[in-house]
Design a protein around this nucleic acid. Structure first.
Lengths: 144, 144
DNA sequence: CTAATTTCATATTGACATACTAGGTAAAAG
DNA sequence: CTTTTACCTAGTATGTCAATATGAAATTAG
């Protein structure tokens, strides 16, 4: 019942790009340094986000990555789901076709459904824009 | 980000005991049959619940397991935490001592904290008594 | 054109976790 | 003393996690 490094790093990666792609594309080399994550691992993670159409890449020198849409258009849940798969807490909620024959007689699924809804609620409530704002506030505190 | 079979089985096991230990101790052999889980695997799971003091065991013929307290005194979260460990979504929330040096500058933790609270809320809201009730309602529907 | 810089694509690795099964021991009842 | 139950430990196959490693392809600067 843990979010993997892949998911957590993906969020920090998207946040890092959101905060730095205003003037020029963000190179993974720089993100890696800022976030203390290896370039190679970031490459793997970002490939999933490129494939999803969340970031676009520019090759060659001065290349890097840029967000395709505005930070406010990426919820935390969207990002996590791309790299972690559906963020559903039990397999029997995964697809609508019933693959567990116990479902009709199983009451524990009510707990799992409510848990799923609660998780969804939090993850889809916040966007990258919120994270950017928080991070900027934190930055200002240091200056003061 | 999944609850393992151990956690899910533990909940079904506790529910099964709650619903059947009124007259005599519940044997794992019977639970195994009712729940379609192997006796051997149930043995491993219940040993964690015995150690936690959640069920007491009676050996020998006509032996089995009984709940120590009333069903209403076991939240779903209590049971899951015994077999799954703390149900916290990211490691940096695990213990109070700060083992991640990024915590002061990391805003993603706000998401994780809220997620943790949401999960806690659901898991600690329901008890075995709720599950028993739901299961009984379901049983009656079949009769009608 | 060439060299440097970047992304892109796969393969490999070691450690650990999951989901069990197997085999045997210990206690209690009849 | 045999049966029935719980109890304990080890093993095992599979998969996932968290990366590294290697190299190719594209782009730009000079």
């Amino acid at each position: 019942m843990k979010i993997s490094t892949k998911g957590r790093y993906a969020l920090r990666l998207m946040l890092d790009i959101a905060m730095n792609d205003a003037t020029e594309p963000v190179r993974l080399k720089d993100t890696a340094q800022r976030q203390s994550i290896s370039v190679k691992y970031l490459e793997q993670i970002i490939s999933l986000l490129v494939r999803a159409g969340y970031v676009k890449s520019i090759r060659g020198p001065q290349g890097g990555y840029r967000l395709v849409k505005k930070p406010s258009e990426y919820t935390v849940g969207m990002i996590l789901r791309q790299v972690e798969g559906n963020m559903v807490p039990v397999a029997c909620l995964e697809n609508d076709d019933v693959d567990c024959e116990r479902q009709s007689e199983c009451v524990t699924i009510r707990i799992w459904r409510e848990l799923d809804a609660a998780i969804r609620c939090v993850l889809d409530k916040y966007t990258l824009a919120d994270l950017v704002l928080w991070q900027e506030e934190l930055g200002n505190e240091y200056v003061i």
